[in-house]
Computed example of a mutant assay.
Amino acid sequence: MPRARLSISLPPDVWMRELSTTHDATAFEVVTALAGENAGIALLRIESDDLLDILADVRSRPDVGDVDLLWKRELTALVQVETTSPPLLFPLWQAGVPVKMPFTVLDGSATWELTTSSDRLSELREHLDEAGIEYDLESVVEIGSSEADRLLTPRQREVLAVAIDAGYYAVPREATLTDVAETLGVSKSTCSDILHRCESSIVTWFAEEQFTQP
């Protein structure tokens, strides 16, 4: 099952595009949203020095119906907006693909993270194309049982499993590198090299997952 990351360029007929490009220094966080064919409802978190101007701008949009200010404190507001323009999330609804919430719209662009089947991801891309929504598929990563296969070779998984079972990674450590090597019937240097490669792959993967997000 793939986990995908898409950079979306909002089309001109979506009200959030003009709003976010007019106020290009403000990030509009979509906390949650509902999409239909002809209408959409979004809950937005807005943090800005110009909150009153932004709220007035939202209300002035011809394709925006109801605007409810649910909560406001200093420079932050939570707003529910109902719109009659073609919803940005409609292709997701068509493909039956849930998107990770919240996501941020900044200067006419949004980043979606989603986990779905390969077939539904392909269907989503077709609906985005049909809607004329430009996007960049930044990454696709297979998750689940295949993740370990992608990170480690069978031999590396075997050595790592022996090290874990022996207590090599326990705190305090319950087995030495020599103990693990003897269990595997390999030299200490070979065992060390394999474990270092395992650790490097796992740490690199973790860093990419956790620290490269916007």
Rank of each mutant, 00 (worst) to 15 (best):
A166G: 10
D136T: 03
T183G: 00
A181Q: 02
T183A: 01
L160K: 03
E147A: 13
T183H: 00
E142D: 11
L151F: 09
C198T: 15
R173I: 04
T176N: 00
A181I: 00
E174H: 04
V203G: 05
G132M: 01
C198E: 15
G132Q: 05
C191T: 15
E142P: 04
S139T: 06
V186Q: 03
L151H: 14
I194L: 09
A148L: 15
A166Q: 10
A170L: 10
G167R: 14
I202H: 08
V171L: 13
L195V: 10
V203E: 08
K188G: 06
E142L: 04
T204C: 10
S139F: 03
E208T: 05
R173E: 06
A166T: 05
G132P: 03
E138G: 05
E174Y: 02
V171Q: 08
Q156P: 12
L160R: 03
L184F: 01
E147R: 15
D179C: 01
F206I: 14
A175F: 02
C191N: 12
A207M: 12
T178S: 07
L152Y: 06
A170K: 11
A166L: 09
R173W: 02
L195R: 05
W205R: 14
A163W: 02
S139Q: 07
S145N: 01
L152A: 08
E134C: 01
S200I: 14
W205A: 13
L160Y: 07
T190W: 12
Y168D: 09
S146K: 11
L152E: 13
L160D: 06
C198S: 15
T183V: 00
A148H: 07
I164G: 04
S139G: 06
D165T: 13
L151D: 12
P172E: 04
A207N: 09
F206S: 09
S187A: 12
G132W: 02
G185W: 00
D179P: 00
S189P: 04
S187M: 07
C198M: 14
C191S: 13
E158Q: 15
A161C: 03
L177C: 01
T190L: 06
A163L: 11
I164C: 05
R173F: 01
R157S: 08
V180G: 01
Y168F: 14
E174R: 10
D179W: 00
E134G: 05
D179F: 00
E147I: 10
I202G: 11
S189A: 13
D136Y: 00
V159M: 02
T176Y: 00
Y168R: 13
A166M: 11
S187R: 11
P172L: 06
C191F: 11
S145D: 04
I143Y: 06
I202W: 07
L184C: 02
V171A: 04
G167S: 12
A148P: 11
D193G: 10
Y169V: 11
A207P: 02
E174W: 02
I202D: 14
K188P: 04
T190D: 08
L152Q: 10
D149K: 14
I133Q: 06
A181S: 02
A166N: 08
I164Q: 10
L137M: 11
L184V: 02
A207Q: 12
Q156G: 12
E147T: 15
G167H: 15
G167E: 14
V162C: 07
E199R: 13
L195Q: 11
R155M: 11
S145T: 06
E199F: 06
G167I: 12
G167D: 13
S201G: 07
E142H: 04
D165S: 15
V140F: 03
A148N: 09
P154N: 06
